[in-house]
């Protein structure tokens, strides 16, 4: 379980939206692409939220980090 890292740097240290979508495809999570979500003042679909994470963090321990963030975003109950 060590798929090729799909993320592409957008030049600012963040992954491109397309590459995040590719990452979701790797795990068969295509259905998540169009999922809008919001929490803690940020709104957008899941891939968009992932693009706000530094690519170096996502690739450092791929895919664990990616899945961790994904799980956190989807499961986060938020703090007041």
């Amino acid at each position: 379980m060590n798929p090729e890292i799909p993320f592409v740097d957008n030049g600012s240290g963040y992954p491109t939206l397309e590459s995040v979508n590719n990452a979701l495809d790797v795990f068969g999570l295509s259905s998540v692409k169009d999922v809008d979500t919001s929490f803690r003042g940020e709104e957008g679909n899941v891939p968009e939220l992932i693009t706000k994470c530094k690519i170096e963090h996502l690739t450092k321990d791929w895919p664990k980090m990616f899945m961790s963030y994904l799980v956190a975003i989807v499961s986060e109950e938020g703090k007041s």
Binding site: L29, V32, D34, V74
Partner: peptide, 13 residues
């Protein structure tokens, strides 16, 4: 995990 994740995301959406 992935299945549950997709399901949760779908519900959230």
């Amino acid at each position: 995990l992935i299945d549950n994740l997709a399901e949760s995301a779908k519900q959230k959406s």
